[in-house]
Amino acid sequence: MAVDEETIRRIARLARLELGEAEVARLADEASKILEWVEVLGRVETAGIEPVSAVIPKPHRWRADEVTDGGLGEALLANAPARAHGFFAVPKVIE
């Protein structure tokens, strides 16, 4: 299936990726080729087959509702690109 440049721009917006014009053109070409390559799956009969998301079935277990850590504010902020007053700092979002 051919992917046009407008679709690439739309997907890039969804993925929060800024792309240059050359990148858009290249990705449209590559994505078209890759999607053509995966078209083979359309020919596989999958009626009545349950989709798989976990390979090794494992029951979900309850755990005790207990506090197991905390007081990690400094460690959490240690890699922050910007911080203020013990919080992550970001550009203003509300005018």
């Binding site: 995966v38 799956l41 359309g42 596989v44 999958t46 087959i49 989709p51 798989v52 998301s53």
Partner: peptide, 12 residues
């Protein structure tokens, strides 16, 4: 068409 289909082929 893609993701769900692939999860089913994974089952196969």
């Amino acid at each position: 068409a893609y993701y769900l289909k692939a999860q089913k082929v994974r089952a196969l």
